[in-house]
Design a protein around this nucleic acid. Structure first.
Lengths: 111, 111
DNA sequence: TCATATCACTTTGTATTGTAAAGTATTTGA
DNA sequence: TCAAATACTTTACAATACAAAGTGATATGA
């Protein structure tokens, strides 16, 4: 069985790519690396993701144990989204992406 | 200007995430890390991506200088897709994703 | 007091994207 | 001669993401 498990077996690399390739997911994680955020705060930080999509993403990421949602029982109640240990570990991935981007993406010329 | 350039400026991390989050892109790159492949060969390796989408992806990645397409003028003509230096450098990203997947994605229980 | 703004989303209808299935044109091997 | 493989393209449809507006609670400033 060579070549990255072409069969029906479980391949963690394949699965991980499937999780991270969903639109906005990496943006969300990247912004949460700076610290926990509320829904609108996260929305502004991510920039350009509409609330319906964002709500679906954070729900999926919560189910996967990558982020945790906390509703603070203050008045008014506030939500906050934070990375779990699994989510924090994605710092390595975001870091690698950042290094690649800085080296290989064309930097626009400044006026 | 704190917080990851919320403005209209160029952020290489943001741009890099946008490139890599397109569906199948990371799967394509990952499979080409094993060596150059033809269209159908790549299609089988990636698994599940339909030819229309695959054609569009490899075209975009070629435009971005991440992969290179060579048409061998043999009879019949054969195409081969290979990673450029920029594409090879994504080995770091794929590696980081793989390590994360192995550590944090649930391994299915074997029968 | 009352309009305005913020919070965290949800709803609706549309646009974009990805899909399966089939087709094109060529060539090789049985 | 006929099936299979090469590299895709075309078509029609389904899934996804979109903008825009709405919800209901609370808080803030004039």
């Amino acid at each position: 069985m060579a070549n990255h498990e072409q069969d029906h077996g479980f391949c963690p690399v394949y699965e991980a790519i499937n999780v991270l390739q969903e639109k906005w997911t990496l943006h969300i994680i990247r912004n949460l690396l700076d610290g926990p955020k509320g829904f609108n705060e996260l929305s502004r930080a991510v920039g350009g993701c509409n609330p319906a999509t964002l709500a679906q993403r954070v729900e999926r990421l919560e189910q996967m144990g990558i982020i945790s949602k906390t509703i603070h029982s203050t008045m008014p109640p506030r939500t906050s989204y934070a990375l779990t240990e699994s989510g924090q570990a994605l710092h390595e991935v975001v870091g690698a992406i950042g290094r690649w981007g800085k080296q290989y993406l064309p930097q626009p010329v400044m006026g």
